[in-house]
Every structure is written in structure tokens, then in C-alpha cells.
Amino acid sequence: MGFKLLSKLLVYLTASIMAIASPLAFSVDSSGEYPTVSEIPVGEVRLYQIADGVWSHIATQSFDGAVYPSNGLIVRDGDELLLIDTAWGAKNTAALLAEIEKQIGLPVTRAVSTHFHDDRVGGVDVLRAAGVATYASPSTRRLAEVEGNEIPTHSLEGLSSSGDAVRFGPVELFYPGAAHSTDNLIVYVPSASVLYGGCAIYELSRTSAGNVADADLAEWPTSIERIQQHYPEAQFVIPGHGLPGGLDLLKHTTNVVKAHTNRSVVE
């Protein structure tokens, strides 16, 4: 069995187990497998329904001669939608809004960016022009300005110390501490036991640490421990890039980060 097929099978099995364990909360999309990078042309966006009122959005972007996937989250909030992270750029984010209108038909009224990198804030200006209120932590807003990236308009308070959590509509926002970046936030959907790890969490097929220019490698494993301790009931975990899975993604990420750190020390 090929690795790609095995990865998709694991996603399907995880979703099936969740649907059985929580039949009222989960209505997993039966329309197909989780979209992969090879299936999404740059400039297009796919939506994948995880649970009743919960979707991931998947886009792709060219970077350094390669094409990478990027995940975000959409959560229903009454007759409105909360968006977590842009679709990595203005063109993708405009396509995301169009796809949401086509498939869901509810307005996106608020959006949260989970850290300051372009795959999370690139497209904020498109959201703002569409009347979406954009939010991020003060740290993310400051770092985005320093980096020359787009800056969300509103500040999220109460997320300055490791372990801080605040309720934001249908989700809980959690600051686990520094990891992929010093400002990275985690998003949890309690009604569906869905954990969105953003770039602080890796997919299972990833074996290298990737972009760690703004990471705190020493603190990252401790931050992941905080996530595990705060959300032990999480059933569906979405990484910032690639295929979702279960809580095993947290341990896998820790292993990859520690291996990278150990290699760096040896070198």
C-alpha cells in the first residue's frame, strides 16, 4: 500500500471513529477524501466538511520552486461564519470567499490569524475590503508590521502568557507558548472536538522541520505538551499544512522538532 493511500485511509478511519463516538456532533463529509496538494491548482481553494458547521479550507501556493498546501478553518456561528487564517495570499483568499459563498452561503463576518507569517495573514486586506472584521493577538499584529505583512485590524486580548485561553464565538483560542513562531495560536472547536494546530503542528508525513527561522526550538516541545494537557479530548487535529489526523500529530511534531534540534547540535 502506497504512503499517500495509507495517509488518506488514516484520515478516513479517524473521521469514521469520530462519527461513531459522537453521532450528534459529527456529520463528516462523505463526498470524498481530504484534498491534497496535487489536486488543488494554485489560485483555487477546496472546502472539506469535518463536522456539522465545521470545515477546513485548503489552498496551495508556490514557494521556492515548489507547491505547498495550506489549511485553515471555518466555523459556523449562528447565521454567520468565523474564518481562521487566510488562504495564503490575496488571490487565494478572494477564491476562498467565493467558494464559501458557493458552498455554504453564509457571510464571513470575523477572521482570526493564528500567527504573523504570510500563509496566515496574506489576504487580510481582501477580507477587510469584503467587510470582514480581522483579528490577531497584539504580538501577531506587531510582528506582521515588522515583517511588512498585512496586519489584522483588531487585537485579541488575554493571550499574552503561555497557557492563556479565551473564548471567541464558537471557538476557544489558546496560546501554548512559542513553537513554530513566538505568537502562534491554537484554535479548538469544543462542539466538535476539532483542534486546529496551525503551523505549530505537523502532518504525519512530514519528517523535516522546514521553516524554523522564527521558531523557538527549545520551547516548542513544552508548548505541545500544554496543548495535549489542555485538549486531551480532541479527536480531529488539523495541521497548518497537509493531512489531518488525531492527537498523534502532536507527538510526531515533537519528535521531528527534537530530531532537528539534535542534528543542529551535532553539526
Rank of each mutant, 00 (worst) to 15 (best):
M1F: 02
M1K: 04
F3V: 07
K4V: 10
L6T: 07
S7W: 09
K8Q: 07
K8R: 09
K8M: 05
L9C: 09
L9Y: 08
L10R: 08
V11C: 08
Y12Q: 11
L13C: 07
S16R: 15
I17M: 05
M18K: 05
I20L: 11
I20V: 09
A21V: 12
S22A: 11
L24M: 15
L24V: 07
A25K: 08
A25H: 14
F26W: 06
F26Q: 09
S27Y: 05
S27T: 07
D29R: 08
D29I: 11
S30T: 08
S30P: 13
S30F: 10
S31R: 11
S31L: 08
S31W: 09
E33M: 07
P35E: 08
T36H: 07
V37Q: 10
E39R: 08
E39Q: 08
I40A: 10
I40E: 12
P41Q: 06
P41K: 12
P41T: 07
V42Q: 13
V42A: 11
G43D: 10
G43L: 04
G43V: 04
G43C: 04
V45Y: 00
L47H: 03
Q49D: 07
I50T: 09
D52Y: 05
G53W: 11
V54E: 03
W55Y: 13
W55A: 00
W55E: 00
S56D: 08
H57D: 04
I58R: 09
I58A: 08
A59C: 08
A59R: 04
Q61W: 12
S62C: 11
F63N: 07
F63R: 10
F63K: 09
D64N: 07
G65R: 08
G65D: 07
A66E: 11
A66R: 12
V67G: 09
Y68K: 11
Y68S: 11
P69V: 12
P69N: 15
S70E: 03
N71L: 01
G72H: 00
L73T: 02
L73S: 02
R76K: 13
R76F: 15
D77I: 03
D79K: 14
D79G: 12
D79I: 12
D79F: 13
L81Q: 01
L81I: 14
L82Q: 04
L82W: 10
L83T: 04
L83V: 13
I84P: 01
T86D: 01
T86R: 01
A87S: 12
A87H: 00
A87L: 03
W88V: 01
G89E: 01
A90Q: 13
K91A: 13
K91F: 11
N92A: 12
N92I: 04
T93Y: 00
T93N: 02
A94M: 14
A94C: 11
A95P: 03
A95D: 09
A95E: 09
A95M: 14
L96H: 02
A98W: 12
A98K: 07
E99L: 14
E99W: 13
I100Y: 03
I100W: 02
E101D: 13
E101W: 15
E101A: 13
Q103M: 08
Q103E: 15
I104M: 06
I104V: 09
G105F: 09
P107H: 09
P107E: 13
P107N: 15
T109V: 13
R110N: 14
R110M: 05
R110T: 09
R110F: 04
A111N: 15
A111H: 14
V112H: 04
S113D: 04
T114F: 02
H115V: 00
H115K: 00
H115D: 00
H117A: 00
H117K: 02
H117T: 00
D119Y: 01
D119K: 00
R120G: 13
V121R: 03
V124K: 03
V126M: 06
R128Q: 08
R128N: 15
A129C: 04
A130H: 11
A130G: 14
G131Q: 10
G131C: 04
G131L: 05
V132I: 15
V132G: 01
A133Y: 15
T134G: 02
T134R: 02
Y135V: 01
Y135Q: 01
A136K: 03
P138K: 14
S139M: 08
T140N: 03
T140K: 04
R141A: 12
R142S: 12
L143G: 05
L143E: 07
E145W: 11
E145Y: 15
E147V: 12
G148V: 05
G148W: 05
E150Q: 14
I151E: 05
P152W: 02
T153E: 12
H154I: 15
H154A: 13
H154R: 09
S155V: 15
L156K: 03
G158I: 07
L159G: 01
S160I: 12
S160V: 14
G163E: 09
A165T: 13
V166Y: 08
R167N: 06
V171D: 02
E172G: 03
E172I: 08
E172V: 08
E172P: 01
E172K: 04
L173I: 09
Y175A: 02
Y175P: 01
Y175G: 00
Y175S: 02
G177Y: 00
G177P: 00
A178W: 09
A178K: 13
A179K: 03
H180L: 02
H180M: 00
H180F: 00
S181Q: 00
S181F: 01
S181N: 00
D183A: 00
D183G: 01
N184W: 01
N184A: 01
L185D: 01
L185F: 03
L185M: 07
I186L: 08
I186R: 01
V187W: 00
Y188S: 04
V189N: 01
P190T: 05
P190V: 05
P190Y: 05
P190M: 05
S191D: 08
S193K: 14
V194I: 15
L195F: 04
G197Y: 00
C199E: 00
A200F: 03
Y202G: 04
Y202I: 07
E203V: 04
R206T: 07
T207D: 15
S208D: 10
S208I: 15
G210Y: 07
G210C: 05
N211W: 13
N211L: 10
V212T: 12
V212S: 13
V212E: 13
V212M: 06
D214Q: 15
D214N: 07
D214S: 13
A215W: 05
A215I: 09
A215N: 13
A215Q: 12
L217S: 11
L217W: 12
A218L: 15
E219V: 08
W220N: 00
S223K: 03
S223L: 02
S223V: 11
I224E: 02
I224L: 13
E225N: 11
Q228G: 13
Q228W: 13
Q228S: 15
Q228P: 05
H230N: 15
H230M: 13
P232L: 12
P232F: 05
E233K: 14
Q235F: 04
F236M: 15
F236G: 06
V237K: 00
V237Y: 05
I238G: 01
P239C: 01
P239H: 00
P239E: 00
P239G: 04
P239K: 00
G240K: 03
G242V: 03
G245A: 05
G246R: 08
G246I: 04
G246N: 08
L247A: 08
L247W: 08
D248Y: 05
D248W: 07
L249C: 01
L249G: 01
L250V: 13
K251A: 06
K251F: 05
H252P: 00
H252C: 01
N255W: 08
V257L: 06
K258V: 11
T261S: 13
T261I: 05
V266A: 10
V266I: 05
E267F: 11
E267W: 13
